[in-house]
Design a protein around this nucleic acid. Structure first.
Lengths: 197, 197, 197, 197
DNA sequence: AATGAATGAGGCTTCATTCAT
DNA sequence: AATGAATGAAGCCTCATTCAT
């Protein structure tokens, strides 16, 4: 069957690539690139370790593919937030909740944040990562501008507020990933509230 | 000399331990425990790789010692901030600047934040790390309480505001460590300002 | 094939373990645990050094497995000797010849004899080794008793004669392994003869 | 003082060499050449590890010196046994007891017996060791001949009986070094008795 | 003489990657 | 496609040896 249906073959191949990629998020997030073993990822994906190499030529390529996918996915969420109906506060709240409720997204941020400092990936890819990060910040900047125009957001350069928002998002997700969640786990409303007057 | 002066020998030994420890901060911060090579650290410390083992019995012990030292040092800064003269805003500003101006402190936060999720360290040490993290949060919580009493800080549970402050500190230091610093680099005044009305 | 036949896979795995174990006898006998290199053993087994670790988790585990196997095999020879038809002298002669003609058995005695004094193996295993050694002495003791009842063996506590026999077996095999074989190489008949009147 | 008395300096140097040599017997006997650490030996000798190298240029040289010393000492005991007054049985009994009561001598046999199979010593030294061993066997052979002439010893080639005696001596000392001593510990009278009618 | 800090060669072990099945 | 046996590069760690004091 698959022999006779090249389109289906391609689709199945894409699905398998995606399966491996998603299985690797938690592994990379918890262990980092160096400590993550291909066999860990294969096990999480439910395949043999050798089979991973039929889809990705190396651990680094898998990692870079993952980072790219995560950044693009995160970028789409940012774009979607900006494009929503309503005021800036609601947009940002929707964004924070969208990220906060998705464990993969939280883990993904973690993965991405460490990708740049990492050895073993090509220089070109290393340049792409912060470029996409800056690109992904634009919709947030736009939302902040809207909020300032609406008079609900704090004053200050929108870029800086956007970075602070991103820092909060990461910091809070990190705190949850660790022990501080037991002390206090601020919700998204508080988080977004900090940017408002 | 060293034969005749045991006190000096002990001190020199401590200095060498400290030298290795400090040399390792940047390495661990940039690469993580798994990717950091003992030979990297030895090189940064200006000694041979074998000599490291005259001071630390393993890479893991070195890492755990570093995390402990960094947490204690961070804890002292937090305590000192709380104990200072003046209002809560000034205390927190002093704290943020103290951390922000010290590259080792920033790198150190990064090291510590990833220590807990890491394999290869004893269960006991793993428990100690979040315990010390929570302990170190107490002075910040106290400052937040003071700020709320003074009427300058936002309302909300002090614990949650303290966690948000910590998240901001980390997030901003992380953003500086990476490419976002080029877009915008919020200063400490803005950072602390978010917690104020 | 291997995919479809789990029984065969298991058997092949056992065979490979056994292959490594047997290859290691000569290495350990000639060099001892500390001086024996995993790469020596791998080379003797005809595989790469890394592959050894797919079958044994460490050099020590391999060594302990070897000692255990050798003791059990030696024990079976002792049991078989006791269970044979005939008088005590013939039984012991058969035993001495069985051991003497098998280079692996001779090397094996050598390995086992040094296992107990060795560092780097677990306390439990260290206790097991002399226990099995004593257990393996029992059939010899029984043969000595029979010989004394038949009136052909020397008087004395059977345990002590059995230990003397064991000492002779080892000592003669050791002498052969070394230079004294050139001077004189007593045969099994002489060896067993010493225990007889 | 020592500056002014070169003879005394030489003597003290010899004493220190001897001290190290004797301290090393137990270490080498228990661990073997490869596993014995210079620091173990230095500790047993009560000096610093670096100081050992003021007396021996390498671990191998120390080991070879030890083996030589032990063989010569053993040779003197053999010679003395042969030269004693009395019948062969008493001579051999005296010999066995002399060796048996001296822990260093027992450990020493153990050291020597493994010296030949060991790597890391020069080819010339490797040839010397069995040569001295054969040389040391001569007095025992002479005693055996005397015993056969006296009619108290078993028949057979004297060389072979001497080798058997040596095997017994080693085997019994080995059994004592290990667990079999708990089962039975044949005394020298029994040991020598085996060679007699 | 005596110490122990320092070096680096070498062996153990892991795991990314390949490849026969 | 899928498996896992097999390889070997690379990093941890030990310890023989050197050397400044």
């Amino acid at each position: 069957m698959s022999v006779n249906n090249p389109e289906k073959v391609t689709r199945q191949r894409e699905e398998r690539r995606s399966q491996i990629l998603h299985a690797s998020i938690g592994i990379f997030a918890n262990k980092g690139l160096a400590a993550a073993k291909i066999s860990d990822i294969a096990e999480a994906a439910g395949i043999s370790h050798g089979h991973v190499y039929n889809y990705y030529s190396s651990k680094e390529e898998l990692f870079v593919s993952l980072v790219k996918m995560l950044q693009e996915r995160y970028g789409r969420v940012c774009e979607e937030a900006r494009g929503r109906e309503g005021n800036a506060r609601d947009k940002l709240l929707w964004h924070a909740r969208k990220i906060g409720e998705d464990e993969n997204a939280l883990n993904g941020m973690h993965v991405v944040l460490h990708a740049e400092t990492i050895a073993g990936i090509s220089a070109e890819e290393k340049r792409e990562i912060p470029r996409r990060a800056v690109e992904n910040l634009q919709p947030i900047i736009a939302i902040v501008k809207q909020g300032q125009e609406e008079g609900t957001f704090r004053e200050g350069r929108p870029e800086e507020l956007a970075v602070l928002y991103f820092a909060l998002l990461n910091g809070v997700s990190g705190a949850r990933r660790r022990g501080l969640g037991a002390v206090a786990s601020p919700d998204e409303e508080q988080l977004v509230g900090l940017l408002c007057k």
